[in-house]
Design a protein around this nucleic acid. Structure first.
Length: 106
DNA sequence: TAGCTGACGCAAA
DNA sequence: ATTTGCGCCAGCT
């Protein structure tokens, strides 16, 4: 294995670990996930991983944009993503998630 | 290896 | 409140 794939694996592992800890009813922005995973500035890369994720164990629908818009979602698009969030208790006004729902894992 | 793409972020206009 | 432009990090030709 190249030393590079080792690093990428580490990145993936760290990111998924953070996402798995996002509690029901709250969300985290792509950028915040990147930062908490130890890779500040890798927001887009986090999106790439969420896009690849196919595991129900990783609540990728809880990762949204920093401006409050939910962003994309492989399983059914933004509509479906909003449905799932609302169902979990996330408050959404218009197209944006209420600022109070952005919670760090602590 | 090089270039293009994208579930983003942010400052400007 | 919106849209535009650029930078950012990884993944995929």
């Amino acid at each position: 294995m190249s030393s590079n794939s080792g690093k990428l694996n580490l990145f993936r592992k760290a990111v998924l670990s953070v996402v798995r800890r996002i509690p029901r009813g709250s969300v985290l922005s792509y950028g915040a996930v990147a930062k908490q995973a130890g890779y500040p500035g890798a927001a887009r890369a986090v999106g790439t991983l969420m896009k690849q994720n196919r595991s129900a164990r990783v609540p990728c629908h809880r990762v949204v944009r920093s401006d409050g818009k939910v962003g994309e979602y492989v399983f059914g698009g933004p509509r479906r993503k909003v449905e799932r969030l609302v169902k979990e208790g996330v408050v959404i006004h218009g197209r944006k998630v209420a600022p109070a729902c952005f919670k760090s894992v602590l």
